[in-house]
Amino acid sequence: MKITLKVWRQQNGKTPGNFNTYTLPDVSEDMSFLEMFDVLNDELIRKGEDPIAFDHDCREGICGMCSMYINGRAHGPLTGTTTCQLHMRHFNDGDTIVVEPWRASAFPIIKDLMVDRSAFDRVIQAGGFISVNTGNAVDANSIPIPKEDADKAFDAAACIGCGACVATCKNASAMLFVSAKVSQLALLPQGQPERHLRVKKMVEVMDEEGFGNCTNTGACEVECPKGISLDHIARMNRDYLVSNIVD
């Protein structure tokens, strides 16, 4: 099939960018979206042109590195799917596809479609952990956890940190990402001792990093490739309120 791509090109964080248009006459339905970019880049390189820079690594939807805003949607038209898992069979012959980088002031552009998501790491460093040194653990089965809680915690922990929530949120808010970690640890008995401190510290750094505010549009939940639920945002809101009232 024939695909026309309008891709955001930007040499680096300091120079302005613009859209370039590329036409691929022969795209296979079985290709992934990124493999289509491989083919395009191969062509560009052979012509001596600069290939399109984009982040990707595992290409099986788990590392969270790929990050394209495709036709107005984070990771493209398919829900529950990262860009690397999106296949061209979901597009039609003759389509024009607009591809942009994640846009948020907390995610500055590095080059073309690559952005810097280290703000997420800094939020985790502020408190997204349970303080237990290696070797201090008790026997794993001495902490029974109701299956339902463990499953809920798992659902939160499934976050891949790709940033689609920020990218898709009209406010560039990172609430879904932050709440997924807060909620995972709040649901587990191991996470209780630091529960209040954790949520306060993480929210503080989240705000410092320049993410926007949550206005509950719910777009993040829909566009999240791992289906992280708004339940976690509610839990974080609750914990945040309580921690501010209690302490």
Partner: peptide, 23 residues
């Protein structure tokens, strides 16, 4: 604040499937 969080917007945005118009 929210405007500041995304100084440069997207050229193409399709949020019709992910959130309500009101929100």
């Amino acid at each position: 604040q929210n405007r500041k969080a995304r100084p440069q917007g997207y050229a193409k945005v399709d949020q019709s499937k992910s959130s309500s118009w009101s929100s």
